[in-house]
């Protein structure tokens, strides 16, 4: 039986037969369906995925006309992380003129709202200058990052220390107190950047510290939207389901813990977000086929129920992309094309 070049979730090369690839596609999709209580992929969708995984071509793309908006988050720090020492406005110009970005984001190297707060007025002139010199829509963005509000980084007792000691109530109270401060910081920074002229505010990797982190993001979105009705807010998630670190927090009467993408997007809508960025995590021990079918199953369910545009996250280790600093072109192009072809999405 013919063997096809394939990769695992960590990017390692393997050889697989078409039958093995198909079995992994079905298993990955059914895993997502089972977890999210959503439909698995249909036969023609499996067939399409099998076709692209068995294709001898290094690069796969969408059909003309099916292209989507490409949103870059944190690129002004990513370019410096790889040792290219350009300033941030130059970075934005490189991305808009050379990298094919449809939107960009100005971000501080300490990519969280809390550290930006005391230097926000130094960030504003850079944003204002960038807005004079660039053409494409420009977000200002950072992570909510609730973890920064607990000891030793912040004033509140550390729930990650309290919880394993069985101090559940104390941990929950700490989360509740911390999220109030986080909301204030997001609204403070978001307001200044919007008043400087940002085209949008990005709340990136929401829920990284669990349900309290996600709740703070939603409340901050609601407050910014009430303050500036025309503001564009993008909420990008940290993981495929909301970790129940507190577990009892609700928004609009719905328990946040355990929500998957198709449920999260309804919360983002209710808060007034303009764009939602759902996530599906890559399992490094499973094949690319398993991961991509699984990711598409989650994103498809989200896209079908969303009333606002969705931009699934397709960076390293999410959306079927392998966990590796340099994700291979073969697997990224297949993930990119398949996600865009099979899901009702509005951007990446």
């Amino acid at each position: 039986m013919d063997q096809f070049f394939h990769r695992m979730g960590d990017g390692s090369a393997v050889q697989m037969t078409a039958k093995q690839i198909m079995a992994d596609l079905v298993e990955g999709s059914e895993d997502a369906a089972d977890r999210g209580k959503i439909p698995p992929l249909a036969k023609e969708e499996y067939d399409y995925l099998l076709d692209i995984f068995c294709s001898p071509h290094k690069f796969i793309s969408v059909e003309p006309g099916r292209e989507v908006i490409l949103t870059y988050d944190a690129a002004t720090l990513k370019i410096r992380r790889v040792g290219v020492h350009v300033d941030r406005i130059q970075a934005l110009q490189i991305y808009e003129k050379i990298m094919g970005a449809d939107t960009m984001e100005l971000a501080h190297v300490d990519y969280s709202y809390k550290p930006v707060k005391p230097i926000a007025t130094f960030e504003q002139p850079i944003l204002e200058q960038a807005l004079l010199a660039t053409h494409i829509p420009l977000f200002y963005g950072a992570q909510p990052n609730l973890g920064l509000y607990s000891q030793p980084d912040g004033p509140f007792p550390n729930p990650s220390e309290l919880m394993p000691m069985g101090k559940i109530k104390e941990a929950q109270e700490s989360y509740e107190a911390a999220l109030e401060d986080l909301v204030k910081d997001i609204v403070f920074v978001g307001s200044l950047m919007y008043e400087s002229g940002a085209d949008g505010i990005n709340l990136d990797t929401a829920g990284a510290a669990g349900d309290a982190d996600f709740l703070a993001t939603l409340i901050a979105t609601e407050k910014l939207k009430a303050k500036y009705p025309d503001i564009c807010i993008e909420i990008g998630m940290a993981g495929e389901f909301v970790l129940g670190m507190h577990s009892q927090l609700t928004y609009k009467g719905e328990r946040l813990a355990g929500m998957y993408a198709h449920q999260q997007v309804k919360m983002a809508e209710a808060a007034g977000a303009t764009i939602f960025g759902p996530v599906s995590n890559t399992n490094t021990s499973k094949s690319a086929a398993w991961n991509l079918a699984r990711a598409i199953t989650f994103m498809k369910a989200c896209g079908e129920i969303a009333n606002i545009p969705i931009h699934p996250n397709m960076g390293m280790g999410v959306g079927g992309v392998t966990v590796n600093d340099q994700p291979p072109v073969d697997v990224v192009s297949r993930s990119s094309a398949a996600m865009t072809t099979l899901c009702r999405l509005d951007g990446l």
């Binding site: 977890r35 919880m163 394993p164 069985g166 559940i168 941990a171 929950q172 669990g210 349900d211 389901f241 909301v242 970790l243 129940g244 670190m245 507190h246 577990s247 009892q248 813990a257 355990g258 929500m259 998957y260």
Partner: peptide
């Protein structure tokens, strides 16, 4: 791991 039971419950189950 599936998001149907959460950290406080996990800690209580451990107890």
């Amino acid at each position: 791991g599936r998001g149907t039971l959460f950290l406080p419950e996990l800690v209580q189950a451990a107890d």
